[in-house]
Design a protein around this nucleic acid. Structure first.
Lengths: 192, 192
DNA sequence: GCGCTTTCTTAACCCGGGTTAACGAGCCCC
DNA sequence: GGGGCTCGTTAACCCGGGTTAAGAAAGCGC
């Protein structure tokens, strides 16, 4: 079985034939380290699946401050999803943290393929549902956990990426400054 | 046209006939002020549309501290959505802040109806998409806005509910304590 | 392999928000 | 229409995290 199909079917069933038609829509994109796939102002027309490497999704505010929304590794979806859904221009950067290969899908092409496919509609729904659940999990962490606890959760959640993500981006992801994260780490190290 | 259909079609097209079949699944639920519709531990089997009144969704942590996730008024969806999707027991309270009428739908019944309906699948997908977008908006506010700015945004977003929501619940929603919100309000009032 | 840039750490100082407590006002229930 | 509640406000104190700055270490481009 195609490894991507294996991954996708963790979200819901998908017949091999349907998957094959879906796969044909995908276009390879190669990103050098630090290259951006999407930038604010771009029209968002595609979503992608990370084949290898690592990307981050982030905002930049008027004063140039970055806020990291997400990190996405192999097998995960990557897109300016909210903007894609709303068919608005991108507000978010998507940048490769490592040399990265994406498989990109044009949304209109996907919609055309899914227009008469219950199977693909259901799958698309499952995928958004997963995105929703993970955002709600994040909301939970902001509401109920301290910065220190959020950092520990992050370390458990993404151990395989930790080595490739600069610490100040982790800080931004959990909603604090790099200096604050450095202090938290010092505190944790002392407490062993 | 049925007012509920008008509301639903703001999310996507839905034929009157399909809507009628959907509507037949709905069951009226009446909640007294302060009554809870869902509580942690409950099996989650339904989602609902608020017909009149106002509800809040919230967590309670081990130390008894509440964190408000959402307020939902007429025409909006209300459910322990993440748990429903994952078919896990509820982690959230849903409580009426006013005498409230809900139209509740059993998920399994809905899935059965939607099983062979592209239209309903597409609609279900649109609904989750909207939920996703609003969670991402909330993430954006936690990452990039100060507590004061989050409060001002909330006041603009839900002016019609402000009178019915105790201030400490607003504080919880924006992620601060009641005391802190009181200070923010005093600051804003002084600045005119 | 040199030099520059990026990253992390540490320190000092400040401020926003948390905590606790006390008080007053309103609301609701009996 | 009292007596409790629940609510909101204010004050005092504390602490976590923001800010700025400086220095050390590591990474990277050329």
């Amino acid at each position: 079985m195609h490894p991507l199909l294996a991954r996708i079917t963790t979200m819901g069933p998908l017949a091999e034939a349907t998957f094959a038609r879906f796969l044909k829509l995908g276009q390879e994109r190669t990103l050098a380290r630090h290259a951006c796939w999407s930038q604010p102002g771009d029209a968002v027309t595609e979503f992608a699946i990370v084949q290898s490497g690592l990307v981050r999704h982030y905002y930049v505010d008027a004063k140039g401050r970055e806020s990291v929304k997400a990190f996405r590794g192999p097998g995960e979806f990557s897109a300016a999803y909210a903007e894609l859904i709303q068919r608005r221009p991108s507000r978010t950067f998507i940048q490769a943290l490592l040399p990265t290969r994406l498989l990109a899908f044009n949304l209109d092409a996907f919609e055309a393929l899914a227009a008469d496919s219950l199977e693909l509609q259901r799958l698309a729904r499952r995928i958004v549902e997963q995105h929703f659940v993970s955002k709600e999990q994040r909301e939970y962490e902001f509401l109920q956990l301290s910065a220190e606890a959020r950092y520990q959760r992050f370390c458990e959640e993404r151990p395989e990426h930790l080595a490739h993500i600069p610490q100040h981006q982790v800080a931004s992801y959990i909603g604090i400054t790099p200096v604050a994260l450095s202090r938290i780490r010092a505190r944790l190290a002392k407490r062993r």
